[in-house]
Design a protein around this nucleic acid. Structure first.
Lengths: 213, 213
DNA sequence: AAAATGATTCTATACGCATCGAATCAATTG
DNA sequence: CAATTGATTCGATGCGTATAGAATCATTTT
């Protein structure tokens, strides 16, 4: 008897795509696809499906159990037989999920979006925290810039001397870092370089704290 | 470089569900589902996906090749990178297919719908072609009735004597066969059993030939 | 009650494939 | 040109699972 399991009982970090995953795995088999096709026309018993597909009854039973786990079919006893029927609504629900493209990124939930940055930083910083080199790839260079930017507080004005002091923690080439921070829009300046400040690229509530280093 | 293959070039008995099958198999993996989720937001390079997913670059390359085979992603060279992007339209096309329930039975194309009948006949007929027993299951008994019905021509009237003669090829219990043929609507009769004829359950063009056995 | 039958479970077995590491390729940077 | 780097391919390994057959269970028929 196929166990009915749904209602993800929240006993762990159930990813948003887990339901979709079991759905796809249930459909990712030629025999099961044919079973779905046959059950779409009419409910069938195991024996009949076995004859139609040309595979053993035990195999069919196994496939049906798998489809039932995904909530796609269910059996009801009818006389001596157990007739399996397709749940068209469940199938349609999954299909509609795929059409809502705006919530497709939820499939990537549980992804650590900082892991790439961390990997890049690990490659280009020594054990003292200073940069060993500047990556040639712009995408990775931006990672370094965002990293040094964290030493500047939003809403605080820094003199060029102070900026260089902070940047010198990471590299001797403070000029390149300073210029790049402005070029890529991470910082802005006034008076031809007298004052620098971090441009607001951060969530509003993070601006409350006004401390300077 | 992922090869672009579509337009099923009709080089064989391509089952209607083959496209769907490769689609499902492409999506039936947790890593690939996450890749789809990430690419739904923005195009990515292999290196970045590898870092985000925490799996090797070679593995990611393999997964992307699989998704590309299913027509779900494609790569375009951008500088030194090859940026992979998602084909939202292909994904939507598959989803819409699942919603058209009336053509779901096409998934079972290539199924021999007579195999069940043949199996039943083989179980209940001896080498001489006569029935060894009557199946107790109604569904199987109907198979036998349809079988003997083929010895009667549409549009021809048979006397009860002639009917019994034909039925006696299969079983001594001609009365049960004759009565069942009428009860289940395969044949009709007139004059309280004087004349019998096959009821028209067959395609119209098959009625043209009027021969009697 | 005994026999038959449809279905499920159990046990192997074999194939597919996800994964990694190494080798290779291609393009860029120095 | 040499070195680096991103990407792909290749070889090997381990896990998952599709499948068949035997055993078991439950129901029905005789």
């Amino acid at each position: 008897m196929p166990v009915k399991l749904n209602h993800s009982t929240s006993h762990g970090p159930e990813s948003a795509g887990d339901e979709l995953l079991s759905f796809f795995r249930a459909m990712a088999d030629p025999s099961r696809l044919k079973i779905v096709g046959l059950l779409a026309r009419q409910a069938c018993a195991v024996e009949q499906l076995s004859a139609l597909l040309g595979i053993g009854e035990s195999t069919v039973s196994h496939h049906l159990a798998r489809l039932a786990d995904a909530g796609l079919v269910s059996a009801r006893a009818e006389g001596h037989y157990s007739m399996y029927s397709l749940h068209l609504d469940a199938l349609a629900a999954m299909a509609r999920r795929l059409l809502k493209t705006e919530q497709l990124p939820a499939l990537a939930s549980g992804i650590d979006h900082g892991s790439f940055d961390r990997k890049v930083l690990a490659s280009f910083t020594g054990p003292d925290g200073r940069f060993t080199a500047f990556p040639s790839q712009e995408k990775k260079f931006l990672v370094l810039l965002r990293h040094v930017l964290q030493d500047f507080r939003p809403g605080v004005r820094y003199s060029e001397k102070k900026v260089n002091e902070i940047l010198s923690r990471y590299s001797e080439d403070t000029a390149k870092l300073r210029r790049s921070l402005v070029d890529f829009g991470f910082m802005d300046r006034e008076g031809g370089g007298r004052d620098y400040w971090r441009k607001d690229r951060v969530a509003p509530e993070a601006r409350i704290r006004g401390e300077a280093s």
